[in-house]
């Protein structure tokens, strides 16, 4: 079974994030890393391919400047190869444009199953995988907390407001996984070494038959009008517990008439 995992390479979430004052795009000039949320999808794909008795896991990603450092992390975990779409014309792409790029790249890999995270850590639009499914004409099951493949059927436990639903779908399909669906492995030293020579196919938007009116800032049909500082919530009183801090909590709750 061949599985495609959509992965995003993002600025390190531990570093302060910023918007470019001119374009209002997220600044992505620094080193990019594999989005933590995507490690779950990569692990899930590796386990499913294994359970199916073979097949390849292919990564599909869109990133500026031919960035591959995040892809190497996922390749080191065990993915076989990657398709990277990198093109200056893609800067400023909205979620739908991104979905068009990813869908065109995924089509090349002809997967049995496409896995993505429910949302990225940096942009968290959370609609891209479903947009990809629609563009590919595939069914989708989102918010999976458990995924199994049985022959030509994928079985998913999908989170709901009330609990979870058991959902089945014929393959090929798009499944989005929540963090915690599986425990991602750490890349081994051998894996890291092997990842250096694994193939990364770098494509432009034009290679995929997409032009500037469909993707990037030229294809975006939403614009940011302004960015302002939010009203900051200030820190209040801080008490270091010396065995009686619970009394201060009780007092505080009394003031609020909770008690």
């Amino acid at each position: 079974m061949n599985v495609v995992v959509c992965v995003k390479q993002i600025p390190d979430p531990a570093a302060p994030a910023a918007l470019d004052p001119g374009t209002h795009n997220l600044v992505r000039s620094g080193k990019l890393i594999l989005d933590d949320s995507d490690a779950y999808g990569v692990e899930m794909a590796l386990q499913l391919a294994d359970a199916a008795g073979g097949g390849e896991v292919t990564l599909v990603s869109m990133a500026p400047n031919g960035e591959t450092s995040g892809l190497r992390t996922a390749l080191a975990m065990g993915a076989a190869k990657a398709i990277l779409v990198s093109d200056d014309s893609l800067a400023g792409s909205d979620a739908l444009s991104t979905a068009k790029v990813l869908a065109a790249a995924i089509r090349r890999a002809e997967p049995d199953l496409v896995i993505a995270a429910t949302e990225s850590t940096d942009g968290y639009t959370g609609t891209t995988p479903v947009q990809v499914a629609e563009l590919l004409g595939l069914p989708s099951v989102t918010f999976a907390k458990k995924v199994e493949v049985d022959g030509q059927t994928v079985k998913v436990e999908r989170q709901t407001e009330a609990g979870y639903d058991e959902v089945t779908s014929p393959l090929p399909a798009v499944v989005t996984v929540t963090a915690g669906v599986v425990e991602p492995r750490y890349p081994s030293f051998k894996g890291i070494m092997a990842a250096k020579s694994k193939p990364v196919d770098t494509l432009t938007a034009a290679d995929l038959g997409l032009d500037g009116s469909q993707v990037g800032a030229g294809g975006a049909r939403q614009q940011i009008i302004s960015v302002v500082e939010a009203e900051a919530r200030s820190a209040g009183e801080v008490v270091v517990d010396e065995g009686d801090a619970h009394e201060r909590v009780i007092q505080f709750l009394e003031q609020l008439k909770i008690l």
């Binding site: 909205d94 979905a99 639009t125 959370g126 629609e134 563009l135 989102t142 989170q159």
Partner: peptide, 22 residues
């Protein structure tokens, strides 16, 4: 919601209109 996001994503691709979330 889970379903709201699914429907909005599908609709966006069907209409070829972007979506603003959050």
């Amino acid at each position: 919601t889970y379903d709201g996001r699914d429907i909005a994503g599908r609709l966006s691709a069907k209409l070829d209109r972007p979506v603003l979330t959050n």
